[in-house]
Write a protein that binds this DNA or RNA. Structure first.
Lengths: 198, 198, 198, 198
DNA sequence: TATGAATGAGGGTTCATTCAT
DNA sequence: AATGAATGAACCCTCATTCAT
């Protein structure tokens, strides 16, 4: 019964990743020990090592989950409807998430992953991939905007995509460091810049 | 001879901080052991502990140096001359730095510090302070812009400052992850947004 | 299975304390390193730290064991039988032990504990408690002796108890420093003093 | 001028020993570091090593000083006058000291030396020598007492000397651990035992 | 598959001692 | 003779990982 086992395996992996995310949110990346994960997941060390080869594998899985959630947001924003409002829809979707406590928690782990990416090739690969995909989707939209004259012809769609992405990334950082940030005002500015992009 | 001692002390501290920065850039924050710093600085463990009470103190000093450099850049950009061109001057100064290899190294450590700040109160304080100061300077400039009609009256100068800051922070992250980023194109977009801010 | 675990735990703790006692007897208190205890106990450092939180905890446990043995001797001597011969029985029990090599070893650690007690509050508490209990038991007996006219009414039973205790303590020190001490002659003197106490 | 140098040397050695005694009284034997002695003596490490080969040499010197003071007390008590009252004079001299704070401090270091003696041959030699000399002096006196019929012929003067010594040693320990001990009552008991020694 | 006691390399730190000045 | 910065072996302890049950 490979299916049952697979399901069971995924359940356990998910349980472990969830416990790890909680620990990281609480204590930080490197301050989270295997014992912490053991305690949080209510599994034994031996059991955890049945599902993950090493602590690094768990971290990789955490990063993968982060990437997966990212993709879903982009898909949600772009997947349906006309392109003309895609940017505004993306902005609403993206910033809208941050009212959810869990999203904020996971996003703050994302900040830690950025640092980790710089010295951990496996994590780097995942983080880079996530950023690149977002950037490419944005670039596509912006190229369409440009064709419709909604974006100045002088600008490189790719560079604009990077700047917009930066507006998202910087926001993630700022809200992680100080959650009193006024999201609505921030969004207003971002949308203003979009509307005057031409 | 207090002067000689002080100078000597500063020299050694600087030597240790420099070695630590190199190690962190190479291996990351938590992967850098005292032995690494010992090897890189060509000092003995005992000697290092004459100048810093603990590993944490060294890390704090690294963060402090990061903050100090940040302040200098802002001071350079705002310190002299008229306000009307302050933003453009800041943008040139800020992005101009990144042609320097050492600045890039230090900036990538800055990214790691963001992650560290989330779970290390001492580091958090320093990082937050740095961001806050930058934001306040930006807000002042933007308020002046607004008074002169160069920024839409609908927007909160503070929120605009945050978004601009995000454009800097996101850039730091993106270039740390991929140094092939085309800086000039990025700057062009940022300046375009400044010029159409009204 | 709490019982099995408890038993196992006690076994290991006992093993570690035993090894530590051997090390201390051989090298002294502060000259005994964790590595010594590791080598003597044939456990790993990590394993030892499963059963004791720190080196200090082990030392405290050694002191506690010392105290426990002390209590047993006193209980054995006083526990049963009439009070009239209690002192003689105690003397026989106490000095009789010293033919046992292990007792001598442990007693010599007791001497080291005296010194440690003077600058280690945790150890001090244990040592003081041990001495106090012995003294109180002795005082009770001596008060009974006095009531029966077997001890001069001029003397304070508590002070006599202290002097008797000193005869025990000084003996412990002297035999630790020179095991050729003639125990029988010493006991003869102590008993003579008891018999002429009136 | 070898004499001047000798004097100077003795002065410095004395200064160092004094500083060490203070440190030991405050923090204990092994908790006293060379840096503590450096700070207390207001000398430099290098300077201290000019006068003592090692930390162990300083400890030996501390033990030697302890022994010297001991000898002086015994000499004072026995040196002059008739033998018949020697024991009472010794008892008065010995216990009389303990009203002096400094003596108590030094005596408590003596307790630490007992422990140290058990695992440090150099210290052991000094401590044993001190005890042995005291014992021999006592034995002589007691032999004289016995000849005069003031001590039961059944008892070995040496063993009686040991028991008396123990009364001194145990007292030193007890007062080090609890300085509220009533010295006068203790002395009364000791003198009572001397007077009924026959 | 699950357990959790055991492992031991490696972590940060201290401190007796040295030696160039 | 005096200095005090420098040394580095050795300290106590942690934690990712293993394996007998």
């Amino acid at each position: 019964m490979p299916k049952v086992n697979k399901e069971h395996q995924e359940l356990r992996r998910s349980q472990i990743i969830g416990a790890t995310v909680k620990c990281i949110a609480r204590k930080g990346f490197h301050q989270t020990s295997m014992q912490d994960i053991v305690a949080e997941s209510r599994l034994s060390p031996g059991s955890i090592y049945t599902y993950f080869k090493s602590k690094e594998e768990i971290i990789k899985a955490v990063a993968d989950r982060r990437l997966g959630n990212e993709k879903k947001i982009i898909a949600d924003a772009f997947g349906s409807g006309d392109t003309s409002m895609a940017l505004n829809r993306l902005v609403d979707t993206f910033f809208g998430q941050f009212t959810d406590e869990d999203v904020r928690t996971e996003r703050s782990i994302g900040v830690q992953l950025w640092g980790e990416a710089l010295c951990n090739p496996k994590v780097r690969e995942i983080v880079q991939k996530g950023i690149e995909e977002s950037r490419k989707s944005l670039t596509e939209i912006l190229a369409a905007y440009q064709r419709r004259g909604k974006l100045s012809g002088d600008l490189s769609p790719d560079a604009v995509a990077r700047v917009m992405l930066a507006q998202f990334q910087g926001f993630v950082l700022q809200i992680a460091l100080d959650d009193r940030l006024d999201i609505d005002e921030y969004v207003k500015v971002v949308k203003h810049l979009i509307s005057t992009g031409s």
